[in-house]
C-alpha cells in the first residue's frame, strides 16, 4: 500500500530546545497508526508541524505526494488533513451545527458576492451543507443536539462534535490528539469502536496521539514511540509492548508501573 504521509528528518526547535528531532516516518493510506511517548516527547509539536501551525526548521513532510511543510494551516486543511485537539477546542459560543458548518468552510465554493445576491448556487450549497452537517451529527450519534451551544454539551459529546467538525472538511488524513483523554473505560471503548468504524466505512487514514495504552494497543496497526523528540521504536503493538527501550523511556521517568498511563 502506498504511504499517504511521509516525513523525512523533521526537526523543530524552540530556542535551544529540540522538540522534534530528526524524525522520519510514514503511514499507509487507510491505516490507523499511533504516536506514543512520555509527556513532552514532542508528539503534539509534531502534529503542529504536519498541520502547518509550526514550520519545521529542517526536513520534509509529504502528503499524497506533495510537499506540505511550507504551507499554511488552512492550505494543509484544504489538501485533506484535519485534526482535533488534546484539550477540546470547539467554538464554544457557536452551536454544534455551526461548528460543523465552519469545518466545511474549505469545501464551500461560492464567492461572497453570490451570498449577497443570494443566487441559486449559493442557496443550493447552503442547503446541501446544512443537510450534510445534520448527517455528520447523526453519524456521531448527536442527532437532535445540533442547536445546542457547543459549550453546553457534555464532555463526551463535545469530543464527538470536534470529530464531526474535523470530518466536515472531508479529510483523507485525520489527526486525533488524545481523543480519549478524560474519558472512562466504557467511553474510551466506544470511541475506539467509532474510530475503527470510521476507517472501515470511509477509508480515512487515522493518526492518533494517545496515552491510554489499552486504546493504543487495541486500535493501532502501527505504533511509533517518541522520546525527547526522537523516534525510539516503531512497529506493531506486540513489538512495542516488549521493546526494552520503550519500557525504559517510560519507567525511567518514574512513571506508574506497567504501560498504563493516565492522560496528562
Amino acid at each position: 500500500m502506498a504511504a499517504i504521509l511521509r516525513t523525512l528528518n523533521v526537526t523543530k526547535r524552540f530556542g535551544g530546545l529540540v522538540a522534534v528531532d530528526d524524525f522520519s516516518f510514514e503511514i499507509e493510506e487507510g491505516s490507523i497508526s499511533s504516536i506514543i511517548g512520555p509527556n513532552g516527547a514532542g508528539k503534539t509539536t509534531f502534529f503542529n508541524c504536519i498541520t502547518g501551525f509550526y514550520t519545521p526548521e529542517e526536513g520534509l513532510i509529504e502528503f499524497k505526494g506533495k510537499q506540505i511543510q511550507a504551507l499554511r494551516t488552512d492550505q494543509v486543511t484544504k489538501m485533506g488533513i484535519t485534526r482535533t485537539y488534546q484539550n477540546i477546542r470547539l467554538f464554544a459560543n457557536m452551536t454544534a451545527l455551526e461548528n460543523i458548518l465552519v469545518g466545511m468552510h474549505s469545501r464551500l465554493k461560492t464567492w461572497w458576492p453570490e451570498a449577497v445576491i443570494g443566487n441559486k448556487r449559493f442557496r443550493d450549497e447552503e442547503k446541501n451543507a446544512l443537510a450534510k452537517a445534520q448527517e455528520l451529527l447523526e453519524f456521531v450519534n448527536l442527532k437532535g443536539l445540533g442547536d445546542q451551544l457547543a459549550r453546553n454539551l457534555p464532555y463526551g459529546a463535545q469530543r464527538r462534535v470536534e470529530i464531526a467538525r474535523a470530518l466536515a472538511s472531508e479529510p483523507d488524513l485525520l489527526l486525533l490528539d488524545e481523543p480519549t483523554a478524560g474519558m472512562n473505560t466504557q467511553e474510551s471503548a466506544e470511541l475506539t469502536d467509532f474510530i475503527r468504524n470510521l476507517r472501515d466505512e470511509s477509508g480515512i487514514t487515522v493518526l492518533l496521539i494517545e496515552h491510554d495504552m489499552r486504546v493504543v494497543m487495541g486500535i493501532s496497526e502501527k505504533i511509533t514511540v517518541l522520546d525527547y523528540g526522537s523516534k525510539i521504536a516503531e512497529g506493531k503493538p506486540k513489538e512495542i509492548q516488549n521493546n526494552p527501550k520503550v519500557i525504559e523511556a517510560y519507567l525511567g521517568r518514574g512513571a506508574a508501573s506497567g504501560l498504563e498511563f493516565s492522560a496528562a
Partner: peptide, 21 residues
C-alpha cells in the same frame, strides 16, 4: 525516499509562501 528531496510544491504556492515570509 529520494522522491522527497525533489520539491513538488506548485510554483504559485511556493511564491506566496516565500512572499508571506
Amino acid at each position: 525516499m529520494s522522491t522527497l528531496t525533489q520539491p513538488k510544491l506548485p510554483t504559485s504556492e511556493r511564491f506566496s509562501q516565500l512572499f508571506g515570509k
